[in-house]
């Protein structure tokens, strides 16, 4: 019996030892910048310019965060970022789920041609269209408005493809049953499709959060006044007197990163699976 037990225990192979060691070393390289960012955010300015470098703050101070939030006006930028992100998420969920459902289940004329057309548009780099898009917003006097920040980011082809995939996985029988009960397309969409595609909606929301929260170029060109500035632009614009104050810069970095990490912590599974699936289906 002991013999059998011994045999069952898998032998540790060389490749496993090698894999674990390399991944561990890589892990240090991946985590070190984050660690340094967090540690520095709690240091005084004097500690950031000490030679040789000090790893841990002598007294952990919250002054940097307070300064960034109040004197550097980050509370306002937080508000703007949140409004922009929520607007884009709500808009994308609405627009993409409607279109995704239609492309998955409604047999309308020229459906496949239109789908190919979307694919072709997806291939065109956004930087190619950003100038014309800016001129459009500029001439509509929508620069420095939330509408200007949000609306152009709403029609997401990627999101439509993602949700279409989810809708296609919902059994036809449910739709048929609902139709017999007198449900129209709108009823099927709101009562059957949306509740059953919850996983897809969450995945899209996380993707939309991540890309919008981190986006620099669009808010950079579309807002000029402080009133509508978002976090990414604010962090990129830290210059002059603050530029060498690394304790403040790192505190600002920590503060823009925390929401990303929180959302990631909650939706980690959906997000990683969503990323993984793009490669398999693509």
């Amino acid at each position: 019996m002991t013999d059998a037990g011994k045999k069952k225990r898998p032998k540790v192979k060389k490749i496993q030892v090698l894999s674990f060691t390399v991944l561990m070393l890589g892990l240090i390289i991946m985590i070190l910048p984050f660690l340094w960012m967090v540690l520095t955010a709690f240091k005084t300015y004097a500690e950031t310019v000490q030679i040789p470098i000090v790893w841990f703050p002598e007294k952990w101070t919250l002054d940097n965060f307070e300064y960034v939030l109040t004197s550097m006006n980050f509370l306002l930028y937080y508000k703007n970022s949140i409004i922009m992100v929520v607007g884009v998420i709500v808009g994308q969920l609405f627009v993409c789920s409607l279109a995704g459902y239609a492309f998955a289940r409604i047999d309308f004329k020229y459906r496949s041609q239109l789908f190919l057309f979307l694919m072709a548009v997806l291939m065109v780099p956004g930087q190619m269209t950003i100038i014309a898009r800016y001129l459009l917003i500029y001439n509509l006097h929508l620069t420095d408005t939330y509408i200007g920040l949000i609306l152009p980011l709403v029609p997401s082809i990627f999101g439509t493809f993602l949700l279409r995939q989810f809708f296609m996985g919902i059994p036809f029988e449910l739709e048929e049953a609902a139709r017999i009960d007198g449900c129209g397309y709108w009823g099927i969409y709101t009562r059957i499709m949306l509740p059953l595609a919850k996983g897809g909606l969450v995945t899209l929301a996380i993707f939309a959060f991540n890309s919008t929260w981190n986006d620099l170029m669009w808010p950079l060109i579309i807002t000029n006044t402080e009133e509508y500035r978002v976090l990414a632009v604010a962090v990129a614009a830290i210059k002059g007197a603050y530029d060498t104050k690394n304790n403040l810069l790192m505190a600002a970095s920590v503060m823009v990163t925390i929401p990303c990490v929180l959302v990631f912590a909650v939706g980690q599974k959906q997000f990683i699976e969503g990323v993984a699936s793009t490669g398999i289906k693509g």
């Binding site: 459902y101 239609a102 548009v121 969409y189």
Partner: peptide
């Protein structure tokens, strides 16, 4: 219904992607 459902995407896309 098909065109109604894709119209928000299509209209916004024509304005902000295809036109540009």
């Amino acid at each position: 219904w098909g065109y109604l459902f894709i119209s928000p995407l299509l209209i916004l896309m024509l304005i902000f992607s295809v036109g540009p």
